[in-house]
Amino acid sequence: MTKATPFLLGLLCFGLLPLTGQDYLIGVSFTLLTWIALTQSWTLLSGFAGYISLGHVVFFGLGGYFVVLTWGILPYWISLPLACLVTFVFAIAISIPVLRVSGPYFVILTFGLAEFVKYVVMAVESHLGQFGRLLLGVPSLATLYWLALFLATLATLITFVIRRSRLGQGLIAIRENEQAAEAIGVPVTRYKTIAYGLSATIPGAIGGLIALRTSYFEPQQIFDPVVSFTVLTSAIIGGSDDVRGPILGAAFLTLLSELLWARAPQLYLILLGILLIVFVVILPNGICGLLRRRAAQA
């Protein structure tokens, strides 16, 4: 059980945090937990199957929009799980055409799709006469924090379980060589669709959580492509072959963001861009990959 110890310790730390009453710390941890959840879910398709998505924000945004639309009608403990269902169904619905495209085209397709949905939602909101919505009576930070902790843990568990399952092995085979994977009996279409659907689920709730946290909704904000970019960079820096990677990546970026964002958000993004390039060129398997290689050589 030694491998699980750091996770359990981390879980304990996160769990005890709200008791400190330090709102700033809780807020930062909340942000960290949401990024962990987003990056872990991203890994399911993009890390394991190699279908790198630059449009993960679309699930985040749609989930958030759903929660915002049903605010006041449904309590959060119903609308959040429903948001997950909505994004899951959406992903499955579009999976047939979307997953036919592979490689770099998939990357830009996901980006284009997210932007498309963003502009549609903007048009809908504009048509409804809404230019930014205020949410009243949102849950407390502590409540949102616990939910975020739950979702981050769940996302990590799901990634962990799938990594070891036949589904995970099949997805990895697809990443390595899709045609060969098909030739050895991996049901590629089915597996990719499952991974895509699963990767969409938790981000739906996370989107709802963020909307509730900021108590404000604006399509440009919640469908911001920088979110997709951050998740992707997070996964590449941390490494996406096992569950530690997304956590490391998310932690690193949250730390960086806390240091820089308030003073110079552009500097933060410039740094992110540089890091992305550096890691893609030199360390494509991320920090975790580096650690694994060091361990293998030792």
Binding site: I52, F229, L232, L269, I270, G273, L275, L276, V281
Partner: peptide, 27 residues
């Protein structure tokens, strides 16, 4: 090793370039 995966890799590299250029300009 990079040449083999030049298409997906170049994409990600240029995503980085894009973000960098946008934000240098913004700054």
């Amino acid at each position: 090793r990079m040449r083999k995966r030049i298409e997906p890799n170049s994409l990600l590299i240029f995503v980085g370039v894009s973000i960098i250029l946008q934000n240098i300009s913004a700054l």
